[in-house]
């Protein structure tokens, strides 16, 4: 009896693998890891290497010699402006998305009927699955100078208000479509589902009994929110903010299709890579958001951002 199993085990490839878990692991992980090594780490290294090259301003040729000159160029006031503008926008969009996402996520979680809940959940997911370009582009219809919003505001007699807002420095512009306010609105819109879903996942884990207990102990509605619900939702908020922040930081489609001549990081990368052919500078430009996001992720992880989602 014992002998036969031994024989069949020896002839059986899977029996052999069972006794050699390291080999099994290598077979499982080998192909995906080799792929990621070549097509993921390879490109990132190529990017890093390029950022240490430098474009000679006189000959227009790229000097393939390691130097920090490109990073020095990165710190010129014009470029620092781009970083500040992008970071401010990413921060503003993230905060506004939290404000909009929270009530929605809360309503979704606290609604009694599971059917209705499922429907609302799917309704948040669906815009995410419809093309992002199309959703950006829809806003051109709304925000353009002769767009829907202008039309509507004129009908209710509020166009004076909009003109006042558009005259504000730093926010306004000739029309909503080419103002920073317009860019902000579109970012707010396209990334909103990325904020709703993690907050919803976090709130889903708050047991009803905790909220009841808070009420039993005499907490007012806002106290329960401030001391019970909000702290427990914080990991979800952080996870969502990783997405909204990163997506805003690197995007070039929104400012490109709506914006004015002041660049955001994504646009700068596109311009340096394409029109001006300064690939080292484009590479150095991308290293910054990558660095920011890695730090952001580490901080968020330490604060427990991904415990509720993954």
């Amino acid at each position: 009896m014992i002998k036969t199993t031994q024989i069949s085990d020896q002839t059986d490839l899977f029996g052999f693998l069972y006794r050699h878990p390291t080999l099994t692991l290598a077979i499982l992980l080998g192909p995906p890891l080799i792929w990621l090594l070549i097509f993921y780490l390879g490109p990132l290294l190529a990017l890093l290497l390029q950022s240490f090259y430098h474009l000679d301003p006189f000959t227009g040729l790229i000097l393939r010699k390691l130097t920090l000159a490109t990073y020095r160029e990165l710190l010129t006031p014009a470029n620092v402006d781009i970083f500040v503008r992008s970071l401010t926008m990413a921060l503003a969009v993230t905060l506004a998305d939290i404000v909009l996402a929270f009530p929605l996520a809360y309503t979704m979680v606290r609604l009694a009927s599971p059917r209705w809940k499922g429907f609302l959940y799917l309704s948040v997911l669906l815009p995410l699955w419809s093309s992002y370009l199309i959703r950006v582009y829809a806003w051109k219809l709304i925000l353009a100078k002769e767009g829907i919003l202008t039309y509507l505001l004129a009908h209710v007699g509020l166009q004076g208000w909009m003109e006042k807002i558009l005259q504000l420095p730093g926010i306004g512009g000739p029309s909503l479509a080419v103002s920073n306010l317009g860019i902000f609105l579109v970012f707010l819109y396209v990334w909103l589902p990325y904020m709703i879903l993690p907050i919803q996942a976090a709130l889903e884990r708050v047991p009803d009994s905790l909220i009841e207990a808070s009420a039993d102990l005499g907490a007012q509605g806002w106290q329960t929110f401030r001391y019970v619900i909000f702290p427990l939702a914080l990991p979800g908020i952080l996870a969502g903010s990783v997405f909204t922040f990163s997506l805003t930081l690197g995007d070039f489609v929104v400012p490109y299709s709506l914006g004015n001549s002041s660049y955001f990081i994504g646009q700068a990368v596109l311009a340096f890579q394409g029109t001006s052919g300064n690939i080292p500078l484009a590479a150095a430009f991308t290293v910054v958001p990558m660095g920011i996001m890695i730090v952001y992720l580490l901080v968020a992880k330490r604060l427990g951002a991904f415990e509720s989602v993954s």
């Binding site: 890891l33 990621l36 097509f39 993921y40 780490l41 390879g42 490109p43 990132l44 190529a46 990017l47 390029q50 990783v242 997405f243 990163s246 997506l247 930081l249 690197g250 995007d251 070039f252 990081i265 994504g266 990368v269 596109l270 890579q273 690939i279 484009a282 590479a283 991308t286 958001p289 990558m290 996001m293 890695i294 952001y296 992720l297």
Partner: peptide, 27 residues
Amino acid sequence: ILQGLMLLPVIVPDIVMAIALLLFYQF
């Protein structure tokens, strides 16, 4: 480390990956 690296494509802006791949292909 591997799990951390796997999160990178999810959180690093698309444009970083795009430029990196373009340079890699060129190279």
